[in-house]
């Protein structure tokens, strides 16, 4: 009695096999990330210095620093966030809290999914057509950021909507039963409990926006500029485009330079992500359920 049969043993072996298999595959997923980081640090780590981060590019971008590009990327991402977060959150609140399930919302949902699937170069062309030419903004930070914002809107909308829907329905009903309007319910109970989920969307957006090259190269990012942008109507350099330019367009760039730029780019994304993750953890701790 209670002794393992041969069949038990076979089942257990199969179980072990699959567990190890899945673990191995999972471990493989981390490998590329580690390899990329290691390569970047190995090949570009030596060039990172205060001078590199805060200096201007010299000698036809073959030497010197990357400050104008770094500065420009911060601008582009910040303006894109300022546009897409309010828009995306508002749209998600409408879709999740107000709109019913009808043909109108289904069309909008379809549009959001399709928007997420559009290649970034198509967004770029849309940005040129709509913002640069039609609205006459010209190639500028504003036009580039608007293009980035449109591109990342689906991410913000979907993440926000999901986090709104994760707030239990009972909370809303409790509010309504006390005579609160929908908006009071949203503002006092639903949104505060969805903030951490919304931040997840923002993190994803920041990462994607920072790295995108195509949508900005026709709309506002410049090959090289001898001055820093002073307003959103100026053009700017950007890290991602700078990396593209020095690897493909400029001959004789020392090897460490593009790897250094890539390292800074990734470092920036990681830095912003860890900040958002910390913020999210802090907010979760404050959650009241």
């Amino acid at each position: 009695m209670f002794a393992a049969t041969e069949l038990n043993q076979r089942d257990k072996n199969t179980q072990t096999l699959f567990r190890m298999g899945f673990m191995l595959v999972t471990a493989l997923l981390i490998l590329p990330v580690l390899l990329i980081l290691a390569t970047l640090v190995y090949k570009g780590g030596s060039i990172i210095s205060a001078e590199f981060l805060f200096g201007d590019p010299t000698n036809g971008m073959r030497e010197g620093g990357i400050f104008p590009a770094l500065y420009g990327t911060v601008w582009l991402v910040a303006v894109a966030l300022l546009v897409s977060v309010p828009l995306g959150v508002a749209a998600a609140v409408y879709l999740s809290e107000y709109a019913g399930d009808n043909w109108f919302t289904r069309v909008i949902n379809l549009a959001i999914i399709n928007l997420a699937g559009v290649p970034s170069i198509v967004h770029a062309l849309f940005g040129v057509g709509a913002f640069v030419l039609f609205f006459g903004i010209g190639t500028s930070i504003l036009a580039a950021s608007l293009t980035l914002a449109i591109m990342t809107l689906p991410v913000v909308i979907v993440a926000t909507r999901e986090s709104l829907q994760a707030v239990p329905r009972e909370f809303r009903e409790a509010c309504w039963n006390m005579g609160a309007t929908r908006w009071q319910t949203i503002r006092r109970v639903v949104l505060p409990n969805a903030v951490s989920g919304i931040l997840t969307g923002v993190i994803l957006e920041v990462s994607r926006t920072t790295g995108e090259t195509a949508p900005i190269m026709f709309t506002g990012a410049a090959f090289f500029l001898p001055f820093l942008p002073e307003s959103v109507f100026d053009q700017t350099m950007a890290l991602s485009l700078h990396l593209y330019v020095i690897t493909t367009q400029v001959p004789g760039v020392p090897e460490a330079l593009p790897f250094g730029v890539a390292l800074v780019l990734i470092g920036m994304v990681l830095l912003m992500n860890s900040f958002s993750i910390a913020l999210r953890m802090w907010l979760r701790g404050r959650k009241k359920w």
């Binding site: 009972e170 909370f171 409790a174 509010c175 109970v189 959650k287 009241k288």
Partner: peptide, 9 residues
């Protein structure tokens, strides 16, 4: 039926 306090203090 089920107590439904709000997720607040």
């Amino acid at each position: 039926q089920r107590p439904n306090p709000l997720p607040l203090s």
